[in-house]
Simulated assay, not measured.
Amino acid sequence: MVDHATPNLPARDFAATAAFYAGLGFEEDYRSESWMILSRGPKDNCATLEFFPYPDLDPYQSSFSCCLRLDDLGAIMAQVEASGVPDARQGIPRYHPATPDPSGLTIAYLVDPDGTLLRLIQND
């Protein structure tokens, strides 16, 4: 197995969080009262997000964020668009389409219902 890290993110409601991410192709791998793990893609090369309960989180005050480096940014962006997440600069949830960054990377931005910013980065 290759070393990897997984973001630990807040969720006000595990069921609502799982439903939102299911629209983006994530499946629930584990859930208890205190932890939830979602993954997307084949088990040997998947994107994994882990969530802890934070029922009192104000999504408009959240400063949580993470980067997901993806082999097929276009595929997840198609799912983001199909799921009905608005392409907007305000509001929660929302996304900003993928664009070339001055760093040379192609990056899209997604804000989930709990106010977490996910930077979706195309692997080279």
Results as ranks from 00 to 15, higher is better:
A19R: 08
N45G: 10
G74C: 00
P86V: 08
Q79W: 03
L120F: 11
D13Q: 07
L118W: 01
L120K: 09
N45L: 11
F52E: 14
L105G: 06
D124S: 13
L9G: 04
L105T: 09
I121S: 11
I37S: 15
Y60V: 02
Y60Q: 13
L70D: 02
S39W: 04
M36W: 06
D124C: 12
N123I: 07
F51D: 05
E50C: 15
L118N: 01
W35R: 06
F20Q: 07
I121H: 03
D71K: 10
A82N: 12
E33F: 00
D71N: 13
L110F: 11
D114A: 10
A16C: 05
N8R: 10
G104W: 04
Y60D: 15
A16H: 03
D124H: 10
A5T: 09
D72R: 08
D29V: 01
G74T: 09
E81Q: 15
H4R: 08
E28I: 01
C46T: 03
G25T: 07
D3A: 12
A98N: 04
A78T: 06
Y109F: 09
D29R: 12
E33G: 10
Q90P: 00
T116K: 07
I76P: 13
R40A: 14
P100F: 05
D58M: 00
P102F: 14
E50D: 10
Y21F: 14
Y95F: 15
S103E: 13
D58R: 01
S63K: 14
S83Y: 04
Q122T: 03
N8F: 08
I76A: 11
N123A: 15
Y60L: 12
K43P: 09
T6N: 14
D112K: 03
D87A: 14
S63M: 12
Y95Q: 02
P42E: 15
L118P: 00
F20A: 05
L68I: 13
D124E: 13
T17I: 04
R89Q: 11
Q90V: 08
V85S: 09
S34P: 01
L117A: 11
H4M: 12
P113Y: 02
Y54P: 00
R89E: 15
P7N: 08
H96D: 10
G41F: 01
A75M: 04
K43T: 12
D71Q: 13
Q90G: 01
A16L: 09
P93F: 13
L68S: 10
Y54E: 15
G91S: 03
Y54K: 10
D124P: 15
Q79P: 02
T106Q: 11
S39T: 13
I76M: 14
V80Q: 08
R89F: 01
L70S: 07
F64T: 11
P100C: 00
I107W: 02
Y21W: 07
V80N: 03
A75G: 04
P59M: 03
S103R: 13
S63C: 00
E81L: 01
T116A: 14
Y95S: 11
R119T: 12
Q90K: 02
C46D: 14
H96N: 12
L24A: 08
Y54M: 11
N45T: 08
